[in-house]
Simulated assay, not measured.
Amino acid sequence: MNPFPHRVIATLLGAMLLACVAAPLLAAEKQTFVLVHGATAGGWEWKRTGQFLTDDGHTVYRPTLTGLGEREHLNSADIDLQTHIDDVVNLILFEDLHDVVLTGHSYGGMVVTGVMDRIPGRLRHVVFLDAAVPEDGQSIWDLFGNDSPPDPERFRDGFMQVPWVEPGAKPPYNVKQSIKCFNQPVSYRNPAALALPVTYVAFVPKDQSAEQRAKTDRSWQNAQARGWTIRTFPGGHVAQQEDPRGVASLIAASVADRNATPAPAGE
């Protein structure tokens, strides 16, 4: 009897068994997450989401950007976007982190864009959560079309004034933020940064259509043009506080996303 077919069958069965064992191990691989908050907030905003990720066995860093959150004592009208990019870059370098899953929310998209440009070799995946997705040389004001002079009532003494910054509130609370964070352009031109796998997540409230949002959201459009993975998640702009477990699972699942080939210009 020819043993060859039996050896082939045994080899195939062995390969199938290896695949069955490897897939769950890959899915269960532990990650290092750096979660970057949005404007006026702080690392406290990611406490519950971060705890869920930690409970799942991951390593989590929740940096608070200079002048905000518990670092309010450093607040100044001289703080700019570059300061906040330096905050995250230095965290990653001084903690000697590698294969980082970098996540930015809202204004945090500007920050992580700058981090991508500076140290792409330290990053494994990037997730933009309802976040700004700027082009190279854009500020967040440029991205959202703020071409007219700023309203003097909203921007006073070098700071952006917003209704959710409430004097006398009990910590944790939102903190006023320097205008320079919003009018300073970001660099996004490093070829290694452009090649990173990225996921863009739109938080979509119940009363909003994802299809309509895609037609009007410049960040969504920029992400799609780059071939990034597009995901949606039900909830408001701070869905990470509304459903921290769901957002934690979403971030972890996004690590497996891979960029598509962008469509040629004009298509």
Score class of each variant (00 low, 15 high):
Gly108Ile: 01
Asn190Leu: 01
Pro152Val: 07
His73Cys: 05
Phe128Asp: 03
Arg226Ile: 03
Thr113Cys: 00
Val165Asp: 00
Phe155Cys: 15
Pro262Tyr: 11
Phe144Pro: 03
Val162Thr: 12
Gly108Trp: 02
Ala27Cys: 10
Pro234Gln: 00
Tyr61Gln: 07
Thr40Val: 09
Gly57Trp: 10
Val127Thr: 06
Thr229Leu: 12
Lys30Tyr: 09
Asn222Thr: 08
Asp78Lys: 13
Ile79Cys: 07
Leu196Cys: 01
Val162His: 10
Ala22Lys: 05
Ala169Asp: 11
Asn90Ala: 10
Asp87Gln: 05
Gly236Asn: 10
Glu29Arg: 15
Leu18Asn: 03
Gln82Cys: 10
Pro167Trp: 00
Glu135Val: 15
Val204His: 08
Ser187His: 14
Ala192Ser: 15
Asp130Val: 02
His105Cys: 06
Ser178Thr: 01
Ala169Ile: 01
Asp142Val: 00
Tyr200Val: 02
Gly104Glu: 07
Tyr61Ala: 00
Ala210Val: 12
Val186Leu: 06
Pro264Gln: 11
Trp46Ala: 05
Ile92Met: 09
Ala169Phe: 01
Pro149Met: 03
Gln31Thr: 02
Ser219Met: 00
Ala132Asp: 09
Pro150Tyr: 12
Pro185Gln: 06
Gln82Val: 13
Glu153Asn: 13
Asn2Glu: 11
Ala15Asp: 10
Gln138Pro: 06
Ala193Thr: 02
Trp141Lys: 10
Leu25Tyr: 05
Asp78Phe: 10
Tyr200Arg: 11
Ser254Cys: 03
Leu97Gln: 02
Lys170Tyr: 12
Asp117Pro: 08
Ile85Phe: 04
Val201Asp: 07
Val111Gln: 09
Ala39Ser: 14
His37Ala: 08
Val34Phe: 05
Gly158Cys: 06
Pro152Asp: 00
Pro262Phe: 04
Ala77Trp: 04
Val100Gln: 01
Tyr61Thr: 01
Gly236Phe: 00
Gly14Lys: 06
Lys215Glu: 10
Ala265Leu: 10
Asp147Ser: 08
Gln221Trp: 05
Asp257Ala: 01
Val186Cys: 01
Asn190Gln: 06
Asp157Lys: 08
Leu74Tyr: 09
Pro3Glu: 05
Gly168Tyr: 01
Asp136Lys: 06
Glu211Ala: 14
Ala23Thr: 13
Ala225Arg: 10
Lys30His: 07
Ala27Gly: 14
Glu45Tyr: 13
Leu93Val: 09
Pro172Gly: 04
